[in-house]
Structure formats: structure tokens, C-alpha cells
Design a binder for these strands. Structure first.
Length: 492
RNA sequence: GGCCCCUUCGUCUAAUCGGUUAGGACACCAGCCUUUCAAGCUGGCAGCAGGGGUUCGAAUCCCCUAGGGGUCACCA
């Protein structure tokens, strides 16, 4: 057990670059980061890329990008270095190999020459018999002479010699002491036939060499932990403190996967979710500040965070709450902040050009302010403001049927056009006055005027404040659009 | 199947040592506001998995059952 008063807290997030950063990984990264920041510790980023087949530099890049986008930084790791590098496992493979062979020399591990096919066949048999699939230990007692001969002849793997008696206890900060009987473990593999270490092995060595004090990771690793503890003990390492945080599950209670829709940080970013909202939401999955407080900025989350308040049970991930939170952030953030983040989405939809003149920016600001009350994502900002930037758009069919396809529609639209003509200056207040005047003159309710106006100007039956909308559009465009629908729908 | 973890409204969660009308949030429903739609405000619906103990008293402690999840890979 570690003596924590004497050393600085050091935690690590160790993704393997075999996919994008998903929501579960992001939450694990977040909890590590919060723990480090809360207690003045250090956050290390390590890349666990010992799976040659599935790891790729592209995935690594998106993971780093996602972490940075979320605002989770690291004190040591890829791209910034540190005193405990290299921070990518594939860059110091000799270390693992050396230690593995040392264990073999000491009789704590041994070479196994069984082929992958033989092993899977044997396991299949055991499964059929209803027995747990275990390695039968057939290479345990090969003589050193025989070993050298076969070693020269072909590839081999290295297995850890598991103790047959006793128990291994994992002291978990969240779950308490968890006891495993040693006899349930078979001689698991620590070095694969390609010479690369397995996760359980490499991880233990790196945690030691990087001086990791707390291993905070998802609960799926709890069952692996005794193996790691056994290795650490055999190697004479200090065992770090563990904290296994609950899993994040899909709404159908299964493990989160592609078929559950957006699961990666990157996808949420593209959907127009704000990092602030995602971080806030993620922090609430398996943790709570202990009071009725849910909307928190990152500083507050750090100040409230503690592992004692992390819950034990898995959390089912509910996108509705994330979306709601995002909407909340969208309408409470500084307007300019929202505008700046919406800009890329507007560009992507080809609503604005790459370069924006200052006066155009001011106009966009007014537009974003107008629509942000009723959208929940940045992407929706683009959709909701489409007709401000384009003159061509669809008209809501039901709306057309209801407000245009009737006697006197053309006349009404013309009257509205004239009324708007009189609004001077062309500002919401004045526009409203003119439309109200028209409503009185025609002796019809204001809504009978507003609805067709909105439809003619935007193609939609709902949207932001009509007067504000008309003002932004401008007198000329408003008149053009009102006239246009008369021809377009052949109104009488 | 073996082992391990978990179990409070549909969902995320609160309830420090056992004593609360079991609290908040999302979602849902209703009302208010209103030029539409939202937003906002107000109110409502809804939960201690089940069964045994221990105790004056249990969501909270113990046991059993059930359910969910994880793991048992030359993946991490």
C-alpha cells in the first residue's frame, strides 16, 4: 500500500488508439483529470498501443484532439513529453521484454509453445463441458533443455505462473476490499508471440515506472486487477491505489456501441454539442456534488470532486439530458461566445463565407441571439437561421394550405407589404406598430397577420420573434419575399 | 457456466452515525406567459427489486432470492 502523504498524486489516462474517444473513455479521462486537479496532482497521458493490428496513428490523433477539445490537458504525455517517457508503449518495448525474461529466469514465468489454434480448441472443449475456459498448464514443466531447443525452432509466448493457493485482495477506493481466490486464475499470457506485452503486463510496469499513485479506470477492469496485483507483487512493486468507476451503459442496459447512435466525443462535437455541456453531463454520470446542484462550470466541478462521492452502480446514458444541458448553455453563455462556436457550422452549411466582414458579424450576432432561445445544438443554430442567409427555401405545406390558399390572401400580403413600407425606422417596435395598425384597420386579430407574414418570409410556421426577424431581414427583402409568394403560389 | 461488482421515480442522482411527508434534475403531463414555436415560471405524475431477520425504529445493518453488468482473449 502506498503512503500517500509523502508523495504527489499521479494519475494516468491510458487509451489505446484502436478507435475514437468514446463517452466512457472521456468520462474516465475526466475523473482522472478532476482528481489530479482537485488535489494538486499530476495527470499523465499514456498510449497503450500494444495491439499492433488495431492501433493506428489516425485514432491517436482524434483521441488527442477530442481530449483537447474537451479542455482536458495533461502534465506529461504525448506531444509534451515529461520525465517518465516515453509515453507510448510501443516506443519502449525492450523494457517489457527484459522484465518478462527476468521473470522467466526467476521461475516466475515460463515459455509456452502451444499454438493459438491448439489453445482455442482446448478452450472450446472446456466450454462445451461447462467448465471455465482455462489454460491447462501443459508447458509449465518443460525442461530448460527442451525449452531452448523449441525456442530456436519457433515462436512462443510467455505465461505468468499464477499461484495456486491463497487469495489476492484488491483494495478499491470506491468498492472497498475485493477478494479473489488465486486458484481461479490460470497462467495468463504476459508476452504475445509477436513479442509484445499484453495489457495486464505492460500496464503494471508502466504504472510503476511512471510513479502512478492512483489507477482510476472503468469497472470492466476490476476483474483484471488481481492479475495486475499478482504481477506487481512478484516484481516487488508498490501496488497503486485503485478506483474502479462504474460503467456507462446504453439505454438498453448493454455496453455502449456504435448501434446506440453517437458514442464518440467527435460525433458530439459534430452534432453541435458544447464541450462545457458534455463535460458537465459526463461529470454527473456516476458522481454528484452532494447537493442539489447540477449545472456547474469546470472550476466548480473540480472544487467539489472527490472519489468518495463516486457511485458504485452503472449509469445508463440518457442523451436527452445532455441535449437539454447543451440548450441551457447555449442560451446562457455570452452571446459572442456562442456566435464564434456557431460560425463553423454556418460555414459548413454554406450559409456564410470563410471571411466575414465586421458588419456581417454584427448581423450574425443578432440572428444567433434571435434563434438561440429555441435551439439545442450549434447545428440547429444553422438550420434555424437558414432563411436569413438564403432566399431560396421550402415552404411549410400545411402552412401554405392554411394561410395562403384562401380568398384574399394576395390582398392581405400586399397590405402587409405596404404596412411594412411605413415602418420607419425599420425596427421591431415600429414594425409591430404598423402591423397592429393594420390589424385594427382590417378588423382581424394580429395573429391572422403574423402567421402569413412569417410563412412568406421564412417558409415556416414557427420561429423566433417575428418583429425582430423582419427587422434583421430588412425592408427590401421583406417586401420581395411577400411579393414572391403571391406569384409562386398563384394567390388571388 | 465459474468468479467479481451492482440494485432509490422511465433516466441521472440526494438522503454524513439507522429516526425525512424519501429531496433535486431530465423526460412526461397540466396551467401561466405569449405574435407562432420555444424559453421561462408554477404545479403534477412517478421510486427504496422481493423475502426474511436485527432494532423501539431500516432505503440505510445482516442473510437469502431475483435481476442487471463485468470478466474468464496472443483486446485493452
Amino acid at each position: 500500500m502506498r503512503c500517500l502523504d509523502m508523495e504527489k498524486i499521479r494519475v494516468r489516462f491510458a487509451p489505446s488508439p484502436t478507435g475514437e474517444l468514446h463517452i466512457g473513455g472521456a468520462r474516465t479521462a475526466l475523473f482522472n483529470w478532476l482528481f489530479a486537479r482537485r488535489y494538486g496532482g499530476e495527470m499523465i497521458l499514456r498510449i497503450d498501443d500494444t495491439d499492433r493490428q488495431r492501433s493506428s496513428p489516425e485514432y491517436l490523433k482524434t483521441i488527442l484532439t477530442s481530449l483537447r477539445w474537451l479542455g482536458l490537458d495533461w502534465d506529461e504525455g504525448p506531444e509534451i513529453g515529461g520525465n517518465h517517457g516515453p509515453y507510448t508503449q510501443s516506443e519502449h518495448l525492450e523494457v517489457y521484454s527484459e522484465i518478462a525474461h527476468k521473470l522467466v529466469e526467476e521461475g516466475k514465468a515460463y515459455l509456452c509453445f502451444c499454438s493459438a489454434e491448439e489453445l482455442t480448441a482446448a478452450k472450446e472443449k472446456q466450454r462445451e463441458k461447462g467448465l471455465p475456459p482455462r489454460y491447462n498448464g501443459c508447458c509449465r514443466n518443460i525442461t530448460s533443455e527442451e525449452r531452448e531447443k523449441r525456442k530456436a525452432a519457433g515462436s512462443y509466448i510467455i505465461r505468468f505462473l499464477s499461484p495456486e493457493k491463497g487469495e489476492t485482495i484488491v483494495d478499491d477506493l470506491i468498492r472497498g476490499k475485493v477478494t479473489f481466490e488465486n486458484k481461479i486464475f490460470d497462467d495468463f499470457i504476459i508476452v504475445k508471440s509477436d513479442g509484445l506485452p499484453t495489457y495486464n503486463f505492460a500496464s503494471v510496469i508502466d504504472d510503476q515506472n511512471m510513479n502512478i499513485t492512483h489507477v482510476i479506470r472503468a469497472e470492466e477492469h476490476l476483474s483484471n486487477t488481481p492479475r495486475q496485483v499478482m504481477i506487481a507483487l512478484k516484481l516487488g512493486y508498490e501496488v497503486p491505489l485503485y478506483a474502479h468507476v462504474p460503467m456507462i451503459l446504453a439505454p438498453d442496459h448493454s455496453k455502449l456501441s456504435k448501434r446506440h447512435g453517437a458514442t464518440s466525443v467527435q460525433e458530439y462535437r459534430e452534432l453541435g454539442i458544447l464541450p462545457e455541456a458534455l463535460l458537465n453531463y459526463l461529470s454527473l454520470l456516476g458522481w454528484s456534488p452532494g447537493e442539489d446542484k447540477e449545472i456547474m462550470d469546470i472550476k466548480e466541478i473540480i472544487s467539489f470532486f472527490s472519489l468518495e462521492r463516486v457511485s458504485k452502480n452503472p449509469a445508463i446514458y440518457d442523451i436527452k439530458k445532455l441535449i437539454w444541458l447543451n440548450g441551457h448553455y447555449l442560451r446562457t453563455m455570452e452571446l459572442e461566445e456562442v456566435v464564434d462556436r456557431a460560425l463553423p457550422f454556418l460555414k459548413e452549411e454554406n450559409l456564410i463565407s470563410e471571411e466575414i466582414a465586421p458588419e456581417e458579424y454584427e448581423k450574425i450576432k443578432i440572428i444567433v441571439d434571435l434563434v438561440r432561445e429555441r435551439v439545442k445544438t450549434l447545428r440547429e443554430v444553422a438550420d434555424a437561421s437558414l432563411y436569413f442567409f438564403r432566399d431560396e427555401f421550402e415552404y411549410d405545406e400545411k402552412g401554405v394550405e392554411k394561410h395562403f390558399r384562401k380568398e384574399g390572401a394576395a390582398d392581405l400580403l400586399n397590405q402587409i407589404s405596404s404596412a411594412l413600407e411605413n415602418a420607419e425606422p425599420f425596427q421591431p417596435e415600429e414594425i409591430k406598430e404598423e402591423l397592429e395598425k393594420l390589424s385594427k384597420k382590417l378588423e382581424i386579430p394580429l395573429s391572422q397577420i403574423n402567421l402569413p407574414t412569417r410563412l412568406a418570409l421564412t417558409g415556416r410556421t414557427m420561429g423566433p420573434d417575428l418583429m425582430g426577424l423582419i427587422a434583421v431581414l430588412g425592408k427590401r427583402k421583406a417586401a420581395e419575399r411577400l411579393k414572391k409568394v403571391i406569384d409562386l403560389f398563384n394567390l388571388a
